[in-house]
Nucleic acid binder design. Structure first.
Lengths: 224, 224, 224, 224
DNA sequence: AATGAATGAGGATTCATTCAT
DNA sequence: TATGAATGAATCCTCATTCAT
């Protein structure tokens, strides 16, 4: 498995480079301003003149770098969409199947922590992503295929693996996956978007949230 | 408790009336058209002329009924926001505390089914709600206070009640609540928004999802 | 021949009506202003804001009446293109074949006078037509088919008729036609566009120009 | 007459040099591209960036060679305008008065052939000329004075000369001139712009067209 | 001489909203 | 109450032109 030519890895790399290297200083300022305002007022309610003002460039400059306003949006949302699912694509992630975490909860905990960190570092862009994906068919398709082709397939393998090891309940993998995702995403949304200023012990929060996920909310003494 | 004059109940009633009675036929057509288009393209990207065309009325007519375009949005989103949390406000819901479901899982199951049904009946408006709430401070405030004042408080009571009865694990109620909400909302989103055309046995789906919520995804044979 | 249902006549009529009746006062002012400026600076170099200013309406008003700037152009150029060839389409024109002018020169003279008058009354629009037709494929096609289908065919018949009567030289009809058209159009352009302020005796000018067309510029005394 | 210092000749010479020598390779490519696109879409509808792209140079380069976009137009249209009337300016042309063609029709025929050839070799630029002259006052003036000062005056002399020799009809020279010009230009426009792909025997076409010009379109048997 | 990034004025078009009918 | 013509500000985008490299 580790032998296969992984084209998506090249994609990822090329993408990161594009995103990081090529950008001129003005381009960076434009992106920054656009992210700020898009996340505050939404794509459609943001005017290019406002972006230009905030970025400190002429309006025309925006269009020298991004053919269209939508182009600007996509050049923000596209890369982040990839980064969002990036860990699921990484070589190391796959290795877990051969030489895996011993315990399922350790695996899920690591994943949860990682994505929580990522979300906290990319609040604004994720907000943009959430709000614009449904209205941008290109994005929607891109993400759908990313998720179904990579994320779902790989997580499924891992779940099956843990089921074989007798660590996970015998339910359909997709339902386990959805439940896990829901709980983790719920935690992330709470801390990153709903009450971002509320201080909390991240370690403990993840610990306890995952405990509820693993063992449920029902009392564990004897009967259920 | 059931004696106190509950203002929110009046709100609810007034609202239902407004929604159902006062509306002229044209007004109804305008609302319907607006919901349709708002949910498809988003509020900011929808033009009043398009709404008018779809509703089969003159552009001016819209503004006879709704002072501004945003007014139109609020008159759609406001009521639905209330309906969304309505069951938590209802007299009967509160009675559960005095004469409650015997078992926690029965209670959660009933709630999940009810809200799933509601979501399925109001797909479009909920989509609007999700997308516009973050950009409409009035709405955001309204919902935040609705949720914190009523929903959270009441659910907390119920959770405490079940904890006392030894049916729920001894975790902070808000974390139990969040976990439950995440799992149920995850299920709703999946079936209503992500794969709406995928047929499924609702009864069984709720059953199994709640089982995972109650008892976790870890294998239950002996040790974990 | 006079029995056939002539669809182009209906076209002409509908067109004239559209042009004359439906127009509101503002619409008329917009058209007038557009004609004025288009003819002065050309279509592409004219801005809609300038038209609006000259017409005394808001810029938006233009677009309520004409979806596009090009639409505005076409609604000016289209009808005039038809009017330009209109006499060739008329029932009476065709009758000339059955019950014709006795003399070819009388026929051409009548035609020349009529079109000279028309050109003088529509200077600006004709200028627009001349300049924009090559850049507006729709217009070009429309005019090409009008001219080839109606004008050329009918004039050819008439020329053949006069050739049979021994009044016109035995050259290919199309070359006679082109020569006649060139001479008449040359005259029109001279008086209407090149030296419009130069006063001249129209009657005599047409007379003498047609004399040159009929009998040539070579000396007629004996040999040439 | 051949003694007078003819300034226009110097003009012509300087012009040819400018046109042919000074041009760098990039400049030539710019001109070529500009001619191509101007003739296709018109001056105002052509953007400098499009010209730059087609010429394969940077946008800035155009402005290194031509101060403004209009400058570029004039540097195309100006020279061609001179070339258009060039034969009328040439020393040899004037000699015709002293040592002229024996026959008027020979003279006109030579002229017609020459200008037809010229038009065929400069289709695009002539199209530009026709379309932009009316909107470029400088060009208009330049051409008007060229034509009235040189062309008209000289042709008039020649016509008078042939009238004296009894070869041309006793009409006002300007009317003879206009008629001749119309017929020849009509022929040129037909073959170069309207049906450029239609093959024809040039020799014969000129012959017959000039026959109609000289002797008219009326039947020549006996009476007229 | 050549570049191409940057400009900001101006382009066509759309928009929410008003108001006389 | 309902209309739809009219508005003019605001929208996204293009343009000719400049200038540091």
């Amino acid at each position: 498995m580790s032998e296969e030519k992984e084209q998506w890895l090249e994609d990822l790399i090329r993408l990161s480079e594009e995103t990081a290297e090529t950008k001129t200083e003005k381009q960076a300022r434009i992106l920054e301003a656009a992210i700020e305002i898009f996340s505050e007022k939404g794509f459609a309610a943001t005017s290019t003149s406002e972006i230009a003002r905030k970025a400190g460039v002429a309006e025309g400059t925006i269009f020298k770098h991004y053919k269209t306003k939508k182009d600007l949006l996509l050049s923000i949302a596209g890369p982040i969409a990839v980064k969002l699912v990036a860990p699921f694509l990484l070589r190391d992630f796959i290795k877990m199947i051969d030489m895996p975490y011993d315990r399922a909860d350790e695996f899920f905990r690591a994943l949860a922590k990682d994505r929580l960190k990522f979300a906290r570092e990319n609040t604004k862009i994720i907000k943009i992503l959430i709000h614009e994906v449904p209205f941008q068919p290109e994005l929607l398709e891109q993400i759908k295929s990313l998720v179904t082709d990579y994320v779902v397939k790989r997580i499924e393998k891992i779940i099956l693996h843990f089921q074989e090891k007798g660590q996970l309940v015998e339910a359909p993998p997709w339902r386990i996956m959805r439940t896990g995702a829901s709980v983790v995403i719920g935690m992330i949304i709470t801390h990153v978007f709903i009450v971002p200023d509320f201080p909390f012990d991240e370690e403990k929060e993840v610990e306890m949230t995952l405990d509820l996920l693993m063992h449920g909310i029902a009392s564990r003494s004897g009967e259920v």
